[in-house]
Structure formats: structure tokens, C-alpha cells
Design a protein around this nucleic acid. Structure first.
Lengths: 140, 140
DNA sequence: GCTTGACTTAGAGTCAGCTCTAATTTTTAT
DNA sequence: ATAAAAATTAGAGCTGACTCTAAGTCAAGC
């Protein structure tokens, strides 16, 4: 079991931000130490894995609103047993959402590839120029 | 020659934002129609190409500050003749900056790959479950 | 020459996404 | 049992990145 500061250390997200994400609904409410909703937050490895997944989306350019559109409809990505019953309907919906998300990731990667291609081109241009200059130096 | 609204249309960046980028130094000051700094902004294809490159960086998650750290030291990525004279020193510096930038892009792509791997895993999990359910239906 | 429309500026306003404060309670170590 | 460290909350404040307003200038068509 992890505390909020353990999670902060393990993920690189501040405790402030973790509480903020919970408040606005990006992350689900975790269990608490005492009573149904008192005491400190307690996280397990499944929570950690989920938080890392969500943070990955954020870090790769997805807005919190977009992230929420994937996670609402009943917290679709947690894989936790106590979540919505797994019936064919929700399964189809989950798979659809993942498909859309994968397509979005592919789009982002394509864009990065394009930017990288331009950068490589520029580097090749400068390298060629440098080589010419060095040859000229050698002759003199 | 393009006006600011041509560039806005061609890149998808608003004219407001283009002026803002120029103001804070993300984009260089373009030529003007009349006098040295009066009249409307005029852009050519090299400017357009450069603006698209910069916007690509932004869209793939780089902050404006990070972008500026690549472009300062004398507007290192424009390839325009009237820029800093091409001497060995600045060439080395340009190549270094591009190398750092390419490394950064690789890092971002790696992160996207990781997020995608998790998404694919989740999808496979749900698909397998769906298949099982369908088989069960068939038997009944 | 006048209107229309796109351009110009400085500066104010907006919104997302944190980030922190203050006052309080809970947890942990001795 | 008590002190220190870490957690809790609501809500205020901050920063980055736009986004717009207002007041004015310029160029083209009628």
C-alpha cells in the first residue's frame, strides 16, 4: 500500500496534482485508511499502474478533458474487479474507446516522425557544409 | 509572398498567435511591406516551412520556452542566407542543438510507444474476454 | 474621395492546469 | 502520551499560452 507521497515519488507527479486530478475526475477516488472516506489515501500497484498510464497520456500531449472522455462511461480503463460488470455491451464500448485512443497515438507518432525528418535533413545539410569547410582547411 | 492571414490559413495557427509568437521571440520578425518596420508582414515559402517546423514542435508537446532554447543563439534553424555567417563554430553549435533536439524527439516517441503498448495490451485483454463470451453464447 | 476590409499596435482578458496557503486532523516514532 | 511529520480540506493564487479589444493605418474598388 502506498501513500500519496509514495505515489508522488514513484510517478513524478506532485501530491498537489494527484489530489487535483482526483478532484476534477481524471483519477478515481482511492480507498482511505479509516472509514469509508476518512483518513489518508491508500494506493496499490494497480492504482500505480493506472496513474502511470494516465500520466503517459498527459505527457504525450493529451488534454485532461480528452483523457476524461476516455475514462468516463464508468472508469473504463482500470481493470479492477469491483468496477462495472463485464458484459458484452461495455466490452464493445471499451474496445471502441481503446481503438480511438490507439489511432490518436498513431497520429501523434506520425507527427513526431515528420518533425524528426525535418531535423535530420537540417542536420545533414549542416554536416555536409562542415565537411566541405574541413576539406578546404586541409588544402590551405 | 504571403500575408499573416495566408500563413494562418496555411498552418492552422491564428494570426493572433503568430503575432504573439513573434512578440515573445518564438518566430523571427518577417519583412514588412513598406519601410524597414512599417506595413504588413510578408512571408515567403522558407518562412512558411520554418513556421510549420516550429509548430510541429509545439504540437508534439514542446513548451514555447524549450522551443526558444533551440532557436536562440542567433535563430539557428532558419537556413536563410542573410542569417549568421556560416563559420565552423556556428556550424558545430547548430549541429549540437539539432542533436539534442533529435534525442528529445526520440524520447517522446519512446514514451508514446510505451503508452501504446499498454493500450494494445488492454485491448487484447478485452477482445479475448469478448471472444469467450461469444463462444459461451454459441453453446447455450 | 469614400467605404470596405485586412492590416497594425499595446495592452487587457481568458482558460487550463497546476501550485500553494492556512487551518486542521491523522499517523508515526519515541 | 506526546511531539513531529505527513496527511486532510476548501479555496486562493499563479503561469503559460493564447485570445481578444480598441483605436488606428493602409490599399483596393466604386
Amino acid at each position: 500500500m502506498y501513500s500519496i507521497s509514495d505515489i508522488a515519488r514513484l510517478t513524478g507527479i506532485t501530491a498537489y496534482t494527484l489530489r487535483y486530478y482526483e478532484r476534477i475526475g481524471v483519477l478515481p477516488k482511492p480507498r482511505r485508511q479509516l472509514g469509508n472516506s476518512g483518513g489518508s489515501r491508500q494506493y496499490d500497484d494497480l492504482d500505480l499502474r493506472y496513474i502511470r498510464f494516465i500520466y503517459g497520456l498527459k505527457q504525450t500531449g493529451m488534454t485532461l478533458e480528452d483523457i476524461m472522455s476516455f475514462t468516463k462511461d464508468g472508469c473504463l480503463l482500470t481493470e479492477r474487479e469491483e468496477d462495472a460488470p463485464i458484459i458484452e455491451d461495455t466490452l464493445h464500448s471499451r474496445i471502441d474507446i481503446l481503438n480511438r485512443h490507439i489511432a490518436d497515438l498513431d497520429q501523434r507518432m506520425k507527427q513526431l516522425e515528420e518533425v524528426k525528418a525535418v531535423a535530420l535533413e537540417k542536420r545533414a545539410f549542416y554536416s555536409a557544409m562542415l565537411e566541405k569547410l574541413e576539406k578546404a582547411d586541409h588544402i590551405l
